[in-house]
Design a protein around this nucleic acid. Structure first.
Lengths: 242, 242
DNA sequence: TCAGTTCATATAGCAATGCTATAGGTGCTA
DNA sequence: TAGCACCTATAGCATTGCTATATGAACTGA
């Protein structure tokens, strides 16, 4: 029942935890199950990982590597928004392929304590959205867009995981995905802009400018400065004289 | 330390569980804490609720009543989509006001076992969206729209709960909300339709027709029938002769 | 009035959980 | 070989959810 007898105990613990987590079918996984499968006794676990949560965090870190690899492993298509779509789909697929791991990563929410993984995922998406912003394809700041899209992405994935596998309808995902991307994009395939339809191309240009500044590592506008900047631009673009 | 000595033990257990849950700050709540605060011993709990989860479900049911009351307690504005916005905001506010309860209700996801509460919330939103559909304001079937909007709504609320209270930015909510509502609505304030911009008013009319049939309690189209129906309509509306 | 039945609560304790105080190897450097 | 740091095991603690069993109370039918 022990796992790969010759690996170091730390690795065996990691693998055992990952395997049990993946096959637990939602049931909680005990430290005793893990240590037994790893062929190790309890203090070894706590020596290496401090906590049960510490061990799980380590498993999650490995899972996150896999997730990030999936998010990066397609060549940039040159159309950043298309890449965002693929990121979304990859996110959902990762969640459905490894629901237990996904739930540990994204479903273990506690008030006022955000899992580090969420911040990382946001950064990943923001990075991609920055390219869209530089290309003048974004309606809002990349950070806000990333947060919004990721929130919807997580929500959809959780819903799909919660559903019986036979009833899962990926249309929920694609529909929500396109809605979110359309909402943040400056140039929809159809024509007009969403929501407050007054958002002019000046705003888009300003966001693109800020993103470009950020990409060039030069001094950039603070969020409050950008807000004021946008306000001025908006006033100019809608003034009778302008 | 006991709670309202004269209420029946069942009620005392419910109140004790609710109170501990609300003030636990995310820490797990034990049955011993609950029974002690309720001034009752363990078997009483299991006699009335069977399970710890059974007790929590009962607490959730009470919380859900409150939630539903919030969702219904504003007069229909005559603009269903505006009511959907209020439902969304009420949902988020409920989550932020009672994060622990919310997490038990919507955050306790397990693979392939969807909390009953989610289905109820979906039904609630679908009901409202039906009015929009009858009014010809919907781009997709009410059920799909409800699922999509609710998924995003839950995702956003979970994100906001996970954030430190000081950093919470409700713009994330309003932005995502408007994006989702815009995506499912037939007549955006601006002009064109989202995504596949080819969706004609014929589709909207068909959805409105189906919703009206459903509301009138007469025989309605099955989802597969509707799909075929829509396909025909689409073919007609895009045919050279039409 | 009183035995019988049912409901509701208490006593005491079980198995499983996460975790740890303490001690025992094991391999290195001096 | 002595000393030292690192890693692991024995054994056990407190807490967890839960229950087998028994006791009390309230009602029912004769």
């Amino acid at each position: 029942m022990s796992l790969d007898g010759q690996l170091p105990p730390k690795m065996r613990l990691l693998r055992a935890a990952a395997e049990l987590l993946a096959n637990s079918g939602g049931a909680p996984v005990s430290t005793r199950q893990i240590t037994q499968l790893a062929g190790v006794t309890a203090p070894t676990l706590y020596h290496h990982f401090g906590d049960k949560e510490g061990l799980f965090d380590a498993v999650v870190a490995a899972g996150f590597e896999e997730y990030v690899a999936g998010e990066r492993d397609f060549a940039p298509s040159g159309q950043p928004l298309e890449d965002i779509r693929r990121m979304w789909d990859n996110h959902v697929q990762f969640g459905l392929n490894q629901p237990e791991l996904y739930l540990v990563m994204f479903g273990n929410i506690r008030p006022e304590s955000r899992p580090a993984i969420v911040a990382d995922a946001e950064a990943l998406m923001e990075e991609m959205l920055n390219k869209a912003a530089v290309a003048g394809q974004l309606n809002v700041q990349p950070r806000e867009a990333a947060r919004s899209i990721l929130a919807a992405n997580v929500g959809v994935t959780l819903m799909l995981i919660a559903e019986p596998a036979s009833e899962r309808n990926l249309e929920l995902s694609t529909m929500t995905r396109d809605a979110m991307i359309f909402a943040v994009s400056a140039e929809p395939a159809g024509g007009a802009a969403p929501g407050d339809a007054g958002k002019s191309s000046v705003v888009v240009a300003a966001i693109a400018l800020n993103a470009a500044l950020q990409a060039s590592h030069s001094d950039q506008l603070s969020s409050s400065e950008l807000k004021l900047f946008l306000e001025w631009l908006h006033r100019i673009s809608t003034s009778p004289a302008g």
